[in-house]
Amino acid sequence: MFKRLMLRFRDMKTISKLISGADEQAHISGEEKPGAEHFVLSALNLEDGSAKRVFEKIGADTNDFRGAIKQQYTDALSSIGINGVATDIHPDPVEPNIMLHNSQPSGQELMKSLYAIKQSDKNRPLLGAHVISVAAEMEHGVVARALKVMGVDRERLAKLAKNEIESN
């Protein structure tokens, strides 16, 4: 009973850090609400280090992922004839001014999936690798396209994330 209570407390701290980190990543990007890509960036910075280890095992790192996200926007602008100069513009960070957390649909989907995982596995702590596992399962959106740009096999990434989770 005490062990489960302590695990729940630890998970709540992890979720708090994950959400605040995702908000920070979104604000740095000039966005008000975090998407799944911001949660992945946040997971890569969590203290448990599991997300970072999974990325290292697949030969990627935070900067690769951040660059691949940026590439999504560059490609989108290029597809409508806007090249070069416009992609070098960096948005001003957004100042947070919300009382309750709100995220983009992809961020909401990711958090719902994390909740479902925790409901089915109440004996392990929530780790950054859980976020990577969920993100690897996403077939559409910025995360899926960024991983594709990086040449990351999503199935292999999901398997490495699950192995990392099971080793803890």
Score class of each variant (00 low, 15 high):
residue 147 L to M: 14
residue 22 A to E: 04
residue 116 A to Q: 11
residue 122 K to P: 00
residue 7 L to Q: 15
residue 117 I to F: 05
residue 17 K to A: 15
residue 65 F to Y: 04
residue 42 S to M: 09
residue 5 L to A: 14
residue 67 G to E: 14
residue 131 V to D: 01
residue 24 E to N: 11
residue 79 S to H: 06
residue 10 R to D: 00
residue 112 K to L: 08
residue 41 L to G: 14
residue 125 P to Q: 07
residue 137 E to V: 05
residue 157 L to C: 10
residue 95 E to L: 04
residue 122 K to T: 15
residue 32 E to T: 00
residue 18 L to R: 10
residue 61 D to M: 05
residue 111 M to G: 02
residue 65 F to S: 14
residue 111 M to T: 02
residue 5 L to R: 14
residue 49 G to R: 14
residue 140 H to Y: 09
residue 43 A to G: 03
residue 2 F to S: 10
residue 112 K to N: 12
residue 54 V to I: 12
residue 52 K to V: 12
residue 7 L to P: 08
residue 100 L to E: 12
residue 136 A to L: 10
residue 147 L to Y: 01
residue 109 E to N: 12
residue 51 A to D: 08
residue 157 L to R: 03
residue 77 L to A: 11
residue 71 Q to L: 05
residue 100 L to R: 09
residue 107 G to F: 09
residue 161 A to R: 05
residue 148 K to H: 07
residue 101 H to E: 00
residue 24 E to I: 15
residue 90 H to A: 08
residue 103 S to A: 10
residue 6 M to Q: 14
residue 131 V to I: 01
residue 48 D to A: 06
residue 94 V to D: 03
residue 8 R to C: 02
residue 144 A to R: 06
residue 119 Q to S: 12
residue 46 L to W: 02
residue 78 S to E: 05
residue 71 Q to K: 12
residue 46 L to T: 03
residue 127 L to F: 06
residue 43 A to W: 01
residue 50 S to K: 10
residue 90 H to Q: 07
residue 15 I to L: 09
residue 129 A to P: 13
residue 152 V to L: 15
residue 148 K to Q: 11
residue 109 E to F: 13
residue 56 E to D: 13
residue 36 A to D: 07
residue 157 L to H: 01
residue 84 G to F: 02
residue 14 T to A: 09
residue 36 A to F: 08
residue 102 N to L: 11
residue 135 A to D: 07
residue 155 E to K: 14
residue 67 G to V: 04
